[in-house]
Simulated assay, not measured.
Amino acid sequence: MLSDLVRKFFYGSGLLGLYHRMRNRRTLTVVMFHRVIDPADPRWNSCDPDYTLEASLFERCIRFLQRHYRIVSTDEVLAARNGERALPPRALLITFDDGWSDNVEFALPRLRAHSLPALLFVVADVIGRRLPFFQERLIAGWRLGRVKAADLVSAAGGTPSSGGNSIDDLRRAIAVLEGLDEATRERVFAPFAADTDDGLRHMVVADELNQLAQGGVCIGLHGKTHTPMPRAVDLDAELGGARAIVAAHLDPAIAPRTMSFPHGRYTPEIARRAHDAGYELVFTSDPTINPVDAGPHWLLGRIGFEQAGIVDRQGRFRADKLALLLFRKPQRQLAA
């Protein structure tokens, strides 16, 4: 209770905002979203709650970001990177990962209503695909009561905990599957496949990708298969090959100039290889604020957050929580 009151005081008094204006003046903050869905939409019942934001809360986040930052476009960041013009004080870039169809239906209209740009990193192989990644499909099956975590653990060769069927148990089981080679994982997943299909379309099609581009959302790359790049069998396919695939879906066919790492996993060598492959800006999931005194670096950190971290117990938006989450992150340049 006391800490909650303290948070509200420091934000409501303006002291936290003053701290932010002084501390983060010469920085670029990059925020990371995934899904944005209205609870009335049927996909709400099967989505992963850790990576999904209610549409109304996304609107509140936008207003918060407009109040405390100068929201910039990908082109503005690239121009600053090339020394053409400086970024404004407390610059912020909005990004989305993966390529969800709900970004078109719920995020894009709200961005356009506020005349805001954004950047979407799309997985090349999901364009035109109905079903999401196996992790999200297993979450869907569990939320719909069709998949039990213990059954998944057993299928993966592990020993399930007694009666464990929480979402944390499920995430631990998914982590086991993520560590398997592709052929073994597909064999383990196969018996669950039908139970993880909610019958809905989740991923973007080419027309939606172009709607986003025409609506002010720049299109970047998020790999070819969504495989963590340190585990990729063919890194060239995940970088240059995927770039060509995405470009072919865009009208006009423009190769992405930016990319982010699936699952946030990379090594310094992979980051350099991505940059050398032609990606002028490469984004991580390292939760850092990027200094820009000498212009933004080509390797940038991003800050993500879950819905549970920005609402109270009644599900109401808490600007003070979001402020504390964003304003105090470490400032760090990720590469020399």
Rank of each mutant, 00 (worst) to 15 (best):
V217L: 06
E208N: 06
V204I: 10
F9P: 00
V72T: 05
V31D: 10
R171G: 12
H202Q: 10
R316D: 13
R7M: 08
R272F: 00
Q333E: 15
R328N: 09
F33D: 12
E84G: 09
K224T: 10
N290Q: 13
F96V: 03
P109I: 11
R328P: 00
Y69K: 02
A107M: 04
L5M: 10
E182S: 13
V204D: 02
S285C: 15
G301D: 10
A113F: 02
F64E: 03
R265W: 00
Q333P: 02
A190N: 00
A206E: 11
D234A: 08
R313E: 15
N82M: 10
L138H: 05
D38A: 09
W142V: 07
T27C: 14
E208Q: 13
F121V: 05
M229L: 15
K148L: 09
L324R: 01
G157E: 08
R313H: 13
R316I: 09
R63K: 05
I62P: 01
R43A: 15
A271D: 09
N45F: 06
H297C: 13
D102V: 02
E76W: 02
V176F: 07
P160C: 11
G141L: 02
F134H: 08
T284C: 10
R143K: 14
R201E: 15
M22K: 09
A55M: 06
D98P: 06
R143C: 07
A79S: 15
G163P: 00
N82W: 07
V72M: 09
M32S: 13
A173E: 07
L152Y: 06
T284D: 08
R25V: 07
D38H: 12
D4T: 13
R110P: 07
P49F: 04
K321H: 11
A183V: 11
L108S: 11
E76H: 05
R7K: 08
L221D: 11
E182D: 13
T27M: 04
D169L: 01
I139D: 03
R243I: 02
L93N: 06
A193T: 07
F261D: 08
E186H: 10
L92D: 11
E76I: 03
R21L: 06
I94H: 05
Q66T: 08
A80V: 10
S260Y: 04
T95M: 03
T284E: 07
D181N: 15
D320N: 04
M1T: 12
H202Y: 09
A55N: 06
F58D: 05
A193D: 13
A155L: 05
D98K: 01
A237D: 09
R7N: 06
A193V: 03
R21Y: 00
R70A: 14
S161M: 03
Y266S: 07
W142S: 10
A107W: 01
G264W: 01
V30N: 04
G315N: 04
R185A: 12
R265C: 12
Q307G: 03
A213H: 07
L92P: 03
K224Q: 12
V188G: 08
R146A: 15
G164Q: 01
D251E: 15
K148Q: 14
A323R: 01
F283R: 06
P49V: 04
G199Y: 08
G179C: 12
A255K: 11
D75P: 00
P256R: 05
K321R: 13
R201C: 14
G164T: 00
W100Q: 03
L200P: 04
I310K: 01
